[in-house]
Structures are given as structure tokens and as C-alpha cells.
Nucleic acid binder design. Structure first.
Lengths: 119, 119
DNA sequence: ACGCGTGGTATCCGTTCGGATACCGGCTAC
DNA sequence: GTAGCCGGTATCCGAACGGATACCACGCGT
């Protein structure tokens, strides 16, 4: 999941799974999108990311932290995550990838459907 | 591996492994770069992609074919692979990702080094 | 006849990924 | 005191990923 694509970027069956472009692990792209409007708390992140377990989200956030994309803050006994400048700068290539995916949506769809089944 | 980065994109320890941006599976990005100047035969691809086994390369190429990025041709008893128009169009977001990685190389490096070890 | 290059396939194997489930300490509300 | 939320951790599990190795049919050169 890399970008807000119709019908819903956070759908159970995510439309942008069609795109071969990936940012970090399974949840990184969505976390980025959740954080682009400002810091969010751990449990706030779990709401739009339906189905992510605490363990997996933690792991994802830790590796984003290790990569310098996200900063973890503890303030007033509350934990929140926010994009670093580096993380924020990665929104540009993400938008480029998203634009490409939207632009070539039909071709991506056709390619998959053109394949009979497993081969 | 997503782009020609110093010192060598095909190095055993690939410098662009630092970037969290991925195109397809492990070899897809490199295959794209190998094909951008024209069609290549199966064994031609194995040369720059040091270490890839036939099985893994085949699997990678098949999934790129399924995604519509690559076309497999058999002509005169020779097999060659070439980028489709869709595949060629994906070079744009790849270049964007590559530019981002080059631009933020130091930050990416610092982020990794700032981490004591495993946590 | 034999070996070699091409373009794979089949099988096995260890690692990683992501999910399910259970549990935890610290704090708050009732 | 006990129930609930918060922000996790620990353990187990099946599936997928990627590499190693062996093998294969086919054509070519000599």
C-alpha cells in the first residue's frame, strides 16, 4: 500500500497491491500516509491499519525508526510517532510512484488478467 | 537494488540496499536496469546479476511478465527478454527513487549507524 | 561419440515475514 | 479491587523468499 487509491487505501483487499513498487515492509507505506498530517499515537495508528497486530506494527515502526524515517517520542506518559525530515522527504518518491500507478492502472490490471492462472 | 549507485550497482554488497524503496522482488530492479538499453537473453542477464541462480531469475522474470513489465520472446531458438511499454514507463518512478536515495545518502547512512546494534 | 552452452525444472533447505494468541506493567475510572 | 486502556513483549505457526544442488532436452561443434 503506497498511496490513496480508489476505493480505499486501507481496504482489506488493497487496490495498490497491484503496483510492484514497495516502500519498506508491508505496512510502511500506510504508516507514512497516516503520519503525513502530523504525529500519531500508537493506538491511533492501529485504527486505520485494520488488521495489523501490535507486534507487527511495532516491528514496522522500529525498522522505520532505524531507517531514520520516523521518530518515536514519549511525552507525558504518551508515545507518539512522527515523520522525520528524511521521512517527509520520501513522500516525494511515494507520490511519484502513486502517480505512476494511477496512470497505468488499466495496464496493470490487464497484465494480471491476461495471465490464465498460475504458471 | 534500484539504481546505478556508487561504487557499483551490482556489487556483492549493494549500496542501494540502504534505500527502503523496492521494485518488485530482490532482482526486479536490477533486471530493469539490465533491460533498459534493449533486449537481453537469459544468460546475458545472469552475467551482471552475479550470484543469481537460474531458478530465482526465472521466477523473477515470470512475475515481471505477469505484471506486464517484461515480454519474453522466442526467436530463432533463442529466448530474449525486453521491457514492455509499461515496464519502460516504470523507469520514471525508479529514477525518482534513485534520485531521492542519492540525495539523502548521508542521512540514510547516519540513521543506520546511529543504531547501536539490534534492538 | 562426447562435451558444451542454453534455458530452464525439481527438490531440498534455512531464513524471514506476517499473523494469532497470550501475556505484561503502569496507569486510570468506577 | 477490579476492570479497562495503553504500549507494548513472548511464543508459536504457516507461508513465502531466496539460495544450493542436481538434473533435463535440445542443438551445436569437432
Amino acid at each position: 500500500m503506497i498511496a490513496p487509491l480508489a476505493p480505499d487505501m486501507f481496504d482489506e483487499i488493497c487496490p495498490s497491491d497491484l503496483s510492484p513498487i514497495r516502500f519498506g515492509d508491508k505496512w510502511t507505506g500506510m504508516v507514512m500516509r497516516c503520519l503525513e498530517d502530523g504525529p500519531r499515537r500508537f493506538s491511533e495508528l492501529r485504527v486505520p491499519l485494520r488488521g495489523v497486530t501490535a507486534k507487527v506494527l511495532t516491528k514496522s515502526l522500529r525498522s522505520m525508526e532505524r531507517d531514520g524515517l520516523v521518530r518515536r517520542r514519549v511525552a507525558d506518559r504518551q508515545v507518539s510517532y512522527e515523520l522525520t525530515l528524511l521521512g517527509r522527504s520520501m513522500l516525494a518518491p511515494m507520490d511519484a510512484a502513486c502517480a505512476w500507478a494511477r496512470e497505468h492502472w488499466d495496464e496493470l490490471l490487464d497484465a494480471r488478467e491476461g495471465v490464465p492462472a498460475e504458471r
